Simulated assay, not measured.
Amino acid sequence: MWFECKCPSDNQALAVLWNLSLPHIAWGIWKERNNRVFRDLETPAFVVATTIHNAIKENFLHSYPSRKYDSPIPTLWEDSDTINRWQIDWNNANLVYKTNQCRQNVIWHPPPIGWIKINVEGAAKGNPGPAGCGRVAKNHFGLLVSMMALPLGTQTNHYTEASAAHFGLHMAKREGFTKVWLESVSINTVNCLSGRTDPSWIIASLIKDCRNIINELADFKILHIYREGNKVVDLLANLVVGYVATNWWSSRAAFPEKLWDLAHNVYYVNQ
């Protein structure tokens, strides 16, 4: 109902404006939120608003090209009636960021004695786009057993996260682990492997292979983890996006220094 009121049938250009506005505004605010939460970077509200406004304008002009030749008819972007009915005050845009939210520690915990905990994550620069995945295996002392990263070529986000779990379990079998605790940031992957949801056809073969490996293990557990507690694997996956060869680290000396230091930090997540 709200959208129908904002997009009257007598003005197709206005309907296009609103169709472009909602996703661009949501995406712009989401990016700014993530920059403030995860990177401690804050962009002034008017800059965020201007960036969103320019993106909408660019896409709008692509849908309605500018005036042709020397026609005196103005572009629809210059049509004051359409713009006035748009009713977004870009000059006074404001972003309210609540800093008094409840926060909890999100930290990696070692598995029980005799278990190996494997953290996995995928990264894709686009959907689809250049992708990679990483996995880190540690024992109950919290000591590094092995760390690997695998470039995946061009993949979707969905496929990349499932590939990360498949990669982690495949290497667990190869290394002879029998009690495996898997942690992934992908709720969808966790739900598929735990049997709560059925996988889509895109990842069905990966999930099936994962389940076959799980059935061969003496014991298995899978849980979702926030990305803040999986930061090392996140950076690891991003490290090999665009690479060709698989990267393997099995010792402290070979472990990338910045990732080793990061593995011992405490991370936070907004609740």
Rank of each mutant, 00 (worst) to 15 (best):
M1L: 04
M1C: 07
E4C: 12
E4Y: 12
K6F: 12
P8F: 12
S9Y: 05
S9F: 06
D10P: 08
N11E: 12
N11P: 10
Q12D: 09
A13D: 08
L14Y: 06
S21M: 11
A26P: 06
A26Q: 07
I29M: 05
W30G: 01
K31G: 01
K31R: 03
R36I: 06
V37E: 06
E42G: 11
T43M: 09
P44W: 07
F46S: 08
A49K: 02
T51Q: 12
H53G: 04
A55R: 09
K57W: 05
D70H: 10
S71M: 13
P72L: 04
T75R: 07
T75V: 00
T75D: 13
L76V: 02
E78P: 13
D79A: 09
I83Q: 14
R85L: 09
Q87S: 13
D89Q: 06
V96D: 15
T99E: 15
N100M: 09
N100L: 09
C102D: 12
R103V: 03
V106P: 02
W108E: 06
H109D: 14
H109G: 12
P110K: 09
P110F: 04
P112T: 13
G114P: 15
G114S: 15
W115A: 14
V120Q: 02
E121A: 14
A123Y: 03
K125T: 05
V136F: 05
N139I: 00
H140V: 07
H140M: 09
F141L: 09
L143W: 11
V145Y: 05
S146V: 01
M147F: 08
P151V: 01
P151L: 04
G153L: 01
T154M: 05
T156N: 00
N157D: 01
N157G: 00
N157V: 00
E161D: 10
A162T: 01
S163I: 01
L169I: 11
T178M: 13
V180M: 13
V180T: 13
V180Q: 06
W181Q: 12
L182A: 08
S184A: 15
S184P: 15
R196P: 08
I202C: 03
A204D: 14
A204K: 13
S205Y: 08
S205C: 08
C210F: 03
C210Y: 02
R211L: 07
I213D: 02
I213N: 02
A218W: 14
A218H: 15
L223G: 08
E228Q: 11
K231P: 05
V232E: 05
L235D: 15
N238M: 10
N238G: 15
Y243R: 05
Y243N: 09
V244K: 09
A245V: 05
A245F: 09
W249G: 03
S250A: 00
S250G: 00
S251H: 07
A253L: 14
A254V: 00
F255K: 03
F255L: 07
P256V: 02
E257K: 00
E257Q: 04
L259C: 04
D261H: 10
N265V: 06
N265G: 05
Y267E: 13
